[in-house]
């Protein structure tokens, strides 16, 4: 009797807490999603649409630009996400120290990039990486290079600039999640470990990282999704060039909808490639980080 009462209350409360969110998502996401799924089976120009069955999927397999955008996106994903998350974790750990002088300053400084307005961001990055920009000037002055690097005109270096720009912008952002999570860790565990003579790196590796596992999983999924949808940086800094070397799936979707002859159906199909990628990666991540249920 008491047991079934508890079960019913669990059920009511379980749905009660999530319901407001689910209702809003139901209204403002499900409808557009169903619509876009339907669109992905349509072909035609602008609003001159007709049912095309799997025509868009066939087009996908024969589209060299799509393959290029997919490859670029996966390269960005494989390189940028790990670099950024490791940096964010290191910074957060260095800042999570009440004896650190100037903690507030460092925290704010490192967080600053993600609040910058996109217009300023693009102007600044383009001018910093210009042929005679400050980056080349500094490298030349330090004798690290002999001739200026054509940052934005070279397919390889343009990718480097994009990775640098995203890392610059989002590392502090991810750091905030780690910092907030570190506050929830009971400090007495650290004190005990310190008294036992556990060195700092071991405290970090064996105490902090396991405790942060849920948040690390969270940031890696979010960053993965964010990078698969990468749009701002290539759109603002390189326009996907040179030679489509920084064209991402999202930028391609944008071009298909708003720059080229509008192919909303095909654009929707490309969008669902991202969804499938995320589904695949989530399964991978799930097996890799398999959580122990408590």
């Amino acid at each position: 009797m008491a047991h079934s009462h508890l079960a019913r209350s669990e059920k009511i409360n379980g749905w009660g807490f999530v319901m407001p969110a689910l209702v809003l998502i139901g209204i403002f996401m499900i409808y557009p999603i169903v619509w876009s799924l339907w669109m992905s089976f349509q072909t035609g120009r602008g609003m001159q649409l007709s049912f095309g069955g799997l025509a868009n999927i066939t087009r996908l397999t024969q589209d060299p630009i799509f393959i290029r955008a997919l490859t670029n996106t996966l390269i960005f994903l494989a390189i940028q996400v790990p670099v950024m998350l490791v940096l964010a974790l290191l910074f957060a750990n260095a800042l999570n120290d009440s004896k650190l002088w100037g903690r507030g300053f460092f925290r704010t400084a490192i967080f600053l990039p993600c609040v910058t307005s996109l217009v300023a961001y693009s102007v600044i990055f383009k001018s910093m990486f210009a042929g005679d920009g400050i980056v080349n000037q500094t490298l030349l002055a330090l004798n690290l290079i002999d001739v200026p690097i054509a940052w934005l005109a070279d397919p390889f270096w343009a990718k480097v600039v994009i990775v640098t720009a995203i890392t610059w912008r989002w590392t502090g952002y991810n750091m905030i999640f780690y910092l907030a999570a570190m506050q929830n860790i009971d400090r007495s565990i650290y004190e005990a470990a310190r008294i036992d003579g556990v060195p700092a790196w071991a405290r970090f590796w064996y105490l902090t990282v396991p405790m942060l596992k849920p948040v690390i999983l969270f940031t890696s999924i979010i960053s993965t999704i964010g990078t698969l949808q990468l749009f701002d940086e290539p759109n603002l800094i390189t326009l996907g060039g040179p030679s489509d070397s920084t064209l991402t799936l999202s930028l391609y979707i944008y071009n298909l909808s708003f720059k080229f002859m509008p192919s909303f159906g095909y654009a929707a199909t490309v969008s669902y490639v991202i969804v499938i990628l995320v589904a695949l990666l989530s399964i991978l991540q799930f097996f890799a980080v398999r959580e122990r249920r408590t």
């Binding site: 630009i65 070279d154 397919p155 060039g241 040179p242 030679s243 489509d244 071009n255 720059k259 080229f260 002859m261």
Partner: peptide, 13 residues
Amino acid sequence: EEADSAVVAQIPA
């Protein structure tokens, strides 16, 4: 726009 992007993609070549 499509043709332009195809031409621009060949500029490094």
